[in-house]
Simulated assay, not measured.
Amino acid sequence: MLGTGLAAPASAARNGPGPQARIPAGVTAGVAVFDRGTGAFTERINADLRFRSASVMKLLIVLDLLWDRGPDALPDTDRTRLTAMLRSSDDSAASHYWSTRGGGAIVNRMVSRLALTGTAPPPSTHPGYWGYTATTAADTVRIYRHVLDAAPAAVRDFVMGNLRQATRCASDGYDQYSGIASAFERPWAIKQGWSGFASGGCTADTPAAKASAASAASGSAGELDLVSEALHSTGTVGGDDRAIVAVLTLHPDGTPYGTAYSRLTELVGSLDVPGARRPAGTWVGTWGSGVRVRTGPTTGSSVVTTLPAGVDVLVGCQKRGQTVSVPPYTNDWWAYLPQYGGYMTNIYADTPDNRIPGVPDCP
């Protein structure tokens, strides 16, 4: 079965984000875009507003470990952990270093070393929660500028090389290609962060995802919001890492992951990002959960991944394939999703007709 949701499609396809920065309704955002070519910011929106870092904290963990040594000096076990932590956002690796290297002391060391102004250890009520480290979009840019312009070449190449190979599916089952990876064509390098969601797309409800949601709903501490769902997209875009992009967002408590994913991607795609190339196609909403993307337009084709429930997808073209029925709907049209390299039955396209308006037929 391609999906389990039975809500009826409701709205038509929409065009992609425009050239003017916009923050979707209900979203709290901190934005900073730095052009390394000119040495100036092209976007600064609430750049000093504090957010809980979620997995963006992993950048500080790896830099702390490599501060006085190169990656080649590490045991193979450490290199393996760090690779998984950077590419697939492995939480167990981050927790290992948090517990063995002093917890909040990691944050304090890196604040001093990098002259960070809005970053701080987790609140005293949650000392073991490395994802509750406070940070800002401006500080995130400072971290990347250190990696790119000040860190030893071996450290820079190790960190950025792994971020360029970030996997679509994170180790906890979350699709981590929201924001930068969906809004722009490669080359890019990303370190994403998420907190408070119950299911993340690449797999359905996973134990790791549920545990993350439970911990995020445990309360707030002062100015740092620990309740609203957090979704962040950070990294570099363009040749030679032309632009550093840091977009930190909070969404109303209870927001589904697919909705937050789409809002973050819309926001990132609307920004002035030097060196960025936006992918061709038409953005279309989806409905249902567990919707599979397949290598061909048949239910017998192998599965590439599953979509976050209700996420917007970029459709390049459409073609007729196997007829699929999800009562009361029947459809033999399939949408090709270039960013996934596969097809989705048009039944789950949030459009009124079997064919998606304005999308050409595939050759």
Results as ranks from 00 to 15, higher is better:
Ala153Gly: 04
Ala54Ser: 14
Ser199Trp: 06
Trp188Thr: 11
Thr167Pro: 05
Ala47Arg: 12
Met110Pro: 07
Gly254Asp: 10
Glu223Asn: 13
Gly275Cys: 10
Thr119Leu: 07
Asp149Phe: 03
Asn346Ser: 14
Trp287Asp: 01
Val107His: 07
Gly128Met: 06
Asp240Cys: 00
Thr203Cys: 00
Thr323Ile: 03
His146Gly: 05
Ala276Leu: 10
Ala137Phe: 08
Tyr177Leu: 02
Val311His: 02
Thr140Val: 15
Gly103Glu: 10
Leu6Gly: 06
Gly26Val: 07
Ser289Phe: 09
Asp78Trp: 05
Asn108Cys: 01
Met1Pro: 11
Gly321Trp: 09
Ala243Thr: 03
Asp353Gly: 02
Ala154Gly: 04
Gly316Val: 04
Asp139Tyr: 09
Asn46Tyr: 04
Val147Phe: 04
Tyr340Ile: 02
Ala246Arg: 02
Asp64Gln: 12
Ser112Met: 00
Gly201Thr: 04
Ser233Ala: 14
Gly16Met: 07
Arg142Trp: 02
Leu267Asp: 03
Gly254Gln: 06
Ser99Leu: 13
Pro71Gln: 10
Met160Gly: 00
Asn346Arg: 03
Met1Gln: 09
Asp353Arg: 10
Asn108Trp: 00
Asn162Gly: 01
Val147Tyr: 05
Gly179Pro: 06
Met160Glu: 10
Pro274Lys: 08
Ser195Ala: 13
Thr286Pro: 11
Tyr174His: 07
Gly238Glu: 08
Arg69Ser: 14
Ser215Phe: 12
Ala181Val: 03
Leu271Met: 09
Val291Trp: 05
Leu116Ala: 05
Asp64Ser: 14
Gly70Pro: 01
Val303Arg: 13
Thr255Asp: 07
Pro122Lys: 04
Arg355Leu: 11
Arg81Asn: 13
Gly316Ile: 06
Met160Thr: 03
Gly5Thr: 06
Leu60Met: 14
Thr117Pro: 01
Thr167Ile: 01
Ala7Arg: 14
His96Ala: 11
Thr299Met: 12
Ala335Trp: 07
Arg242Glu: 08
Tyr343Arg: 04
